[in-house]
Amino acid sequence: MTAFIEISKQSKSNMAPIAFAAFLGLLIIYVAGHSQSDILHNAAHDVRHATGFPCH
């Protein structure tokens, strides 16, 4: 039982950095793939079309 509680405590404390990393990944995809800033849109234009992101 103690061992089980230890493991579940450990995996809970591990979840925060994973969630933060996933958020960062999502942010990269949003900025590079979806942001409508003119410079970003023009630079990433061809990739956005090829990856199937809604582009313009």
């Binding site: 990393a21 990269i28 793939g33």
Partner: peptide, 8 residues
């Protein structure tokens, strides 16, 4: 974009 994919 693939760095973002890979991190996720």
């Amino acid at each position: 974009i693939y760095i973002g994919y890979a991190i996720l």
